[in-house]
Design a protein around this nucleic acid. Structure first.
Lengths: 281, 281
DNA sequence: GATTTAATGTAATAAAACTTCATGATTTCA
DNA sequence: TGAAATCATGAAGTTTTATTACATTAAATC
């Protein structure tokens, strides 16, 4: 069954003229014939159906069906992995776009892993576990990450508030206590609104955990615990922010860590919350 | 790109019992069925031929023939796959959690690739390109994906509205025209609120693009174009919804496809919008 | 417990693959 | 050189395989 195309190439010279015509036609665009009935192929390469069958047999296939299966198996051998973070060019086909975008997103998770500090993560989880309340803040693209974490926390009945409006953030920060934790999400780490809110939170003795891109940044300097997400995307103009995926990955880890601290209870809560949603279908 | 076995695995949970019986039989020894006519398979797994065909269709294959081709394509390309989706246990260390969560997220992007149809993606991008307005709808975890897409569209000056409140969704749907496109995000594909809104949109002749988990679902049935995200997480109780990452990956592709249609203009817009944000640091 | 709806199977039909055989071309050698 | 033998090919018929339409059974709903 292995590599049908190769078998056709190899056998080419041994074929009768009209059989060879068919074989060459197939080699020109193997993908195309996969969905073709023998009758159509017969028309397109001007050879009878019988000839096609005979060609299959000559190449040691049981029949046309087997030939197609075999071609399908070899056509789809995945092409070489595209390189690291790439950009999209003018003439990109959808296929290219799918590959490039996805591989950037994969890469951003992998890179984050190499930049992520276990101890910081452990510290962050412990802070949250003991927190009375978690205030999650972020604006723009980071707002989405903030909201995601809030949703998760609600599922395990952890008091958590995600605010994406800078006034609301400031207002809420005013009421924080030393029992509370702020989770600040900011790609740049320089977002003015976030910095302001963190400062107020610190004044109130709340702990601050940051999720920013790797490197020195203001948010990071003001935080008790820093978690870094990969930031390689800056070279990419695409706007399909891979860093957001990396940040969400961190949020997943934080949440899972938090949930596992009270494993039994959390599992119960998760099942409960899933059921209440599913019962609405 | 199209891994038939993965598609079967992904769709497994959405199948009717007897269809699932067939699917599981196939997964047990995929090679074996390649040479089998439908009648024999029917006997061996004790389900009617009609059920087999229905299973193929549920998994978005055109028929049994296509399913076999697709399996053949994937059978010999799956060497040493790293372990698939894992769950967190009671005693997991932070290190383990980091690894498992991240690898699940990576896997969800990869799986989505094998389930994603290029033609559908192309069709979706074209619809959006020509749309007067794009209405993005999603509730719960999918709300976040919807908002993410809205943010991106705003950056290239495409008229786009993300609504996460079901009343607002309905209200907005009433005003849609045949020039408009709805992008419906729903993990289950059965979200009542989303289904209702889609129906109204269709009445108004708007086109509907869906992003759901793989398989048969109501949203998918009501849509003009269907994009599928990997859904294996159901086995995971963690609540760290990997599917959301897969959905965001799809959104990235959609957006990049859209932006690349007017490459020069889009790049200009993206630079502009980035600058306006950065000037605030 | 009757009525609707969904799930599955049976049997007829359509499509595709494969065989048989006739025909015409090519080769062989008396 | 031309009759017999061999070979390559295609047209039409046959068998196998896939698909559809409809009937039946099971499950859910009222």
């Amino acid at each position: 069954m292995n590599d049908g195309l190769e078998r056709i190439r190899q056998g080419l010279t041994t074929l009768k003229p009209s059989e060879r015509k068919v074989a060459q036609y197939i080699l020109k665009d193997p993908d195309k014939i996969l969905a073709m009935p023998i009758a159509q192929l017969s028309k397109e390469c001007e050879a009878s159906e019988a000839t096609i069958i005979r060609m299959c047999r000559s190449l040691q296939f049981k029949g046309f069906r087997e030939l197609k299966l075999s071609i399908s198996a070899s056509v789809n051998q995945r092409e070489a992995q595209p390189e690291r973070y790439q950009d999209i060019s003018t003439s990109a086909s959808i296929k290219e776009i799918i590959e490039v975008v996805s591989s950037n997103n994969l890469q951003s998770i992998e890179d984050t892993l190499s930049v992520l500090n276990e101890n910081s993560m452990e510290a962050a989880v412990t802070l949250m576990e003991n927190a009375r309340k978690i205030l999650v803040i972020g604006v723009g693209a980071s707002a989405i990450v903030a909201q995601d974490f809030e949703q998760k926390c609600k599922r395990i009945n952890k008091w958590c508030e995600a605010l994406t409006d800078s006034h609301a953030q400031l207002t809420s920060a005013v009421h924080l206590t030393k029992e509370d934790v702020v989770l600040a999400v900011s790609y740049s780490g320089e977002t003015k609104e976030i910095v302001d809110t963190i400062k107020i939170a610190r004044q109130n003795k709340a702990s601050v955990i940051s999720i920013t891109s790797y490197g020195n940044n203001e948010v990071q300097g003001l935080s008790n615990v820093n978690l870094f997400a990969s930031n390689l995307e800056q070279s990419i103009r695409s706007g399909a922010t891979a860093s957001r995926i990396a940040q969400l990955n961190i949020v997943d880890i934080l949440f899972t860590g938090l949930a596992s601290k009270n494993y039994q209870e959390s599992i119960g809560f998760l099942d409960k919350t899933r059921n209440v949603i599913q019962s609405r279908f």
